[in-house]
Amino acid sequence: MATRRRLLPAAAMAVTVGATGLAGAAPAAAALETQVNCTANPGALQPAIDAASPGDTLRVRGTCTGPFTIDKVLTLRGNGQAVLDGNSAGLPAVTIGDLGGSQAHVTLDHLTITHGNAGVGGGIRNNPSATVTLINSTVESNTAQYGGGIYTYGTVHLIRSTVRNNTAGAGGGIMSDTTVVVTLDNSTVERNSAGGGGGLYIRAGSTATLTHSTVRDNTAQVGGGITSEGTVTLNLVHSTVRGNTASDRGGGIDNGGTATLTHSTVERNTSQGGPGSGGGINQQSPSATVTLSQSQVRNNTPDNCAPSGSVPGCVG
């Protein structure tokens, strides 16, 4: 059941219409807020998404059964911690935009996205030119070949959100396509697993920035916490990569691009590939660079950084 009410614009303009005024000018349509009660009707959300106008807000209650597609500017806000359940239907739980490059801008606020199962993007597939922002939300228990929790061709921004317990062939928690932007603020990527990039897999040409965020307890063959491929720019600011495990190399970070750590820590990660496999940070090639600025790489097994001497300031 959906209940709609009109929201007042953020600012109002008083117009006096006179002989030389703006007679006949139509006021801008106000955004609508629609109540979607999935407790009463688990299938209510997708029809509400389809009926919504760009800029509207859907206030969601209960567990909604999907999967879901959102191809417009829209905010979904949970009452409590509402659930978007992909129903293990062989598709992403939530698909943002389309492959044609639509300008979808979607905010998911106080929601749990779960039970997606897809080739690309188990929990969320964010298509080209689309932007998705997660606020106080959780992406958990999804599976995919690429991007178990989230796969993004566009821009993704996590704020006070968590990506956990997802699995994939590559990018257990989050995987980017090429030349995209991934931003995490006060967020956590934990207990995800993959063949490469247990927590995050960032592909060539992309930029990933983690601020006051944590990547922990993820597992992979390569890059237990983070894998960066080729010309990636990876920035960690006041962030931690901790307790991740790789069966081959790069327990914490398997770095192929340019990484800068500022006031950050890589600690207690493990690589099971033996000495020189980069328990903390593994440098994929001589062209890969890591800059440590007031940051520490410590207590990793079997070593902190590999090859030895490849990361200035990293010893042991």
Rank of each mutant, 00 (worst) to 15 (best):
R5W: 13
R6G: 05
A11G: 04
T16M: 12
A23P: 08
P42G: 04
A44E: 01
P47W: 07
A48G: 02
G55P: 00
D56K: 00
R61V: 01
G78C: 12
G78V: 05
Q81F: 15
A82N: 02
D85N: 15
A89I: 01
A89L: 06
P92N: 09
T95W: 04
G100C: 08
V120R: 13
V120A: 08
G122D: 05
N142F: 11
G149R: 08
Y151M: 04
T152W: 13
T155F: 14
T155A: 13
L158Q: 02
N166C: 13
T167Q: 11
A170H: 14
T178C: 10
V180H: 10
N186E: 15
S187E: 06
G196C: 09
G197M: 03
A204W: 01
G205K: 00
T207D: 03
T209R: 10
T211A: 07
R216F: 02
A220M: 01
A220Q: 02
V222C: 07
G224I: 00
E229S: 05
T231C: 05
T233N: 12
N235M: 13
V237P: 09
S247K: 13
D248Y: 14
G256T: 08
A259P: 03
T262D: 15
T265L: 11
N269A: 06
T270A: 13
G274D: 00
V290Y: 04
V290I: 04
G316C: 10
